[in-house]
Design a protein around this nucleic acid. Structure first.
Length: 467
RNA sequence: GGCGGGGUAGCCAAGUGGUAAGGUCGGGGUCUGCAAAACCUCUAUUCGCGGGUUCGAUUCCCGCCCCCGCCUCCA
């Protein structure tokens, strides 16, 4: 089956075909975090979905050039820096750092570029774009000195979100500048400096000020990837106004459409059935989960296993399920490796491609995982009936291909000497058929965070999940 | 009010116009000194509700209900 994705723009499944004439390079832009606080697991659901997308494209032979921006200037970052009495850059730096750290913990591939909005070259690019928009009559400076996009002059405005301009109404969520704007829906490209901005300001042809939110993504995306992109992702809440504005700005400047060939949006995350919010006390960050003993891969699996367009209900029970499923994979790999140890010559291979085929269908991760677990059972059965080392090696190679996409494998933890000693003692007790002593030592080991099991080949010691 | 997404077993979740993958939990079994792991087996006459089309619908059409989100700076 051909690779296809659900394009928000057309609201249909479309076969994927990159712009690159060779059909090789994929230009992908993903909206990154606003660095005013630690990113929460809802944010990471989106980034993990994007990671899965990138990895699967790579598995299918594409060369993905991915950009993820960092929004390091906006109302919230400015507010935060003032509250802490820090220069803006000093306020945002630790959040950038924390973000990179979390990406690492979750095995999210680093994008090729991490442009930040405040970098000189992008501020310059934004100013250049705004100038062009003004020249073309697509933007204007209002009485409040800010520059706004004139949405009435961009006929396509509203297409992505399926919004009718006449029906846009203010939710009052944002300070209303309606008196200065020609249309309520006109959005800021350049915000004139005001007192609350403190020393956060750049010079521009329209006076001191700072960029509006939307323009940064247009500027960074087109600077790094060109005027037209293959894929642009984000959470569904970004469809409007953010991505709608990006289309208006980018196409308004380049005159080329479409700005983006495939828009992919991921649904939100709920926590225990409720929206995550600080007031509900269910606002979770990665360190919160790590502190409870969960690992990055367990969180990754819990966030990965639901299709990206379906809402994902994050629960503690779900994390426990993830842990259980992963330890099954670990045990399976341990057995395969043990069997494969006796050979190094792969002379057969497992030709089953259903995993990747499932992902071809708009990243159907559930079907893909279904296939993985089905084959896991098949191969476990083969192991039970004594498997040849070459066969085990073939299964391991099958897994490696899959794991390049899932990124769920951890390096095995070495058994420390003191644990080895207890295991040795237990071995002796068992040889003496001293079951009481044997069970005692097993309990000791468990308390120390190690599981020990008896198999026909002797004791098997593994690290306890969550220990 | 407008625009989306979703409602499938205790929980999570695929799926097809022809009779419900997979994960997890729980019951039974094989194995084991006991466990554990692995495997086998059982657990939805039924897919939010009501109509319609059809030989046949969870799947297509119509209407309704519920949940979540967006409607100007939230992934």
């Amino acid at each position: 089956m051909a690779l296809r994705f659900f394009n928000t723009y057309s609201r249909t499944l479309e076969e994927f075909q990159p712009l690159d004439p060779e059909g090789k390079i994929v230009k992908m832009y993903t909206c990154g975090p606003t660095v005013y606080s630690r990113a929460h697991i809802g944010n990471f659901r989106a980034y993990i979905f994007e990671d899965l997308l990138q990895r699967h494209l790579e598995a299918r032979g594409f060369n993905v050039n991915r950009v993820m921006n960092l929004t390091d200037v906006d109302d919230k970052t400015i507010r935060g820096s003032r509250a802490e009495n820090l220069p803006l850059a000093d306020f945002t730096a630790p959040f950038k750092e924390a973000f990179f750290q979390d990406l690492g913990t979750l095995e999210i591939k680093s994008p090729n570029e991490f442009p930040a909005a405040t970098e000189d070259r992008y501020i310059a690019a934004m100013i250049a774009m705004i100038s062009i928009l003004i020249e073309r009559g697509l933007a204007y400076q209002a009485d409040d000195k800010s520059v706004y996009y004139r949405i009435n002059r961009f006929p396509n405005y509203g297409h992505l979100a399926h919004f009718d301009l006449a029906e846009l109404r203010s939710t009052g969520r944002v300070k209303s500048d309606e008196y200065d704007k020609e249309h309520v829906g006109d959005f800021a490209l350049w915000k004139a400096w005001d007192e609350e901005d403190g020393d956060v300001a750049w010079e521009s042809p329209w006076g001191r000020g700072r960029p509006g939110w939307h323009i940064e993504c247009s500027a960074m995306a087109t600077s790094l990837l060109g005027e037209q992109l293959d894929i642009h992702c984000g959470g569904v809440d970004n469809i409007f106004p953010h991505h709608e504005a990006e289309i208006a700005q980018s196409e308004g400047c380049s005159g080329k459409a479409p700005f983006v060939r495939y828009w992919l949006h991921c649904a939100h995350l709920l926590v225990e059935g409720e929206k995550m919010s600080k007031s509900l006390g269910n606002f979770l960050t990665l360190p919160d989960l790590l502190a409870k003993g969960y690992t990055g891969r367990e969180v990754r699996f819990a966030l990965l296993r639901v299709h990206y367009r379906a809402p994902l209900n994050f629960t503690w029970e779900g994390l426990a399920e993830a842990r259980q499923a992963l330890s099954r994979i670990d045990e399976w790999l341990r057995r395969l490796r043990e069997t494969a140890r006796l050979t190094s010559s792969p002379n057969e291979s497992i030709e089953r491609d259903n995993f990747a085929a499932a992902l071809d269908d708009d990243l159907n991760i559930s079907a893909a995982l279904g296939e993985l677990f089905e084959q896991l059972r098949v191969s476990n059965r083969e192991l039970d009936e004594s498997m040849k080392p070459e066969r085990a090696l073939a299964w391991l190679q099958w897994w490696e291909k899959i794991n390049r996409v899932l990124a769920l494998e951890t390096s095995e933890e070495k058994v420390p000497p003191e644990i080895e000693q207890l295991v040795e003692k237990r071995k002796q007790a068992r040889q003496a058929r001293d079951w009481q002593r044997s069970d005692e030592l097993r309990d000791n080991l468990r308390d120390l965070g190690w599981d020990v099991r008896d198999t026909k080949d002797g004791q098997v010691v593994t690290r306890r999940a969550g220990a």
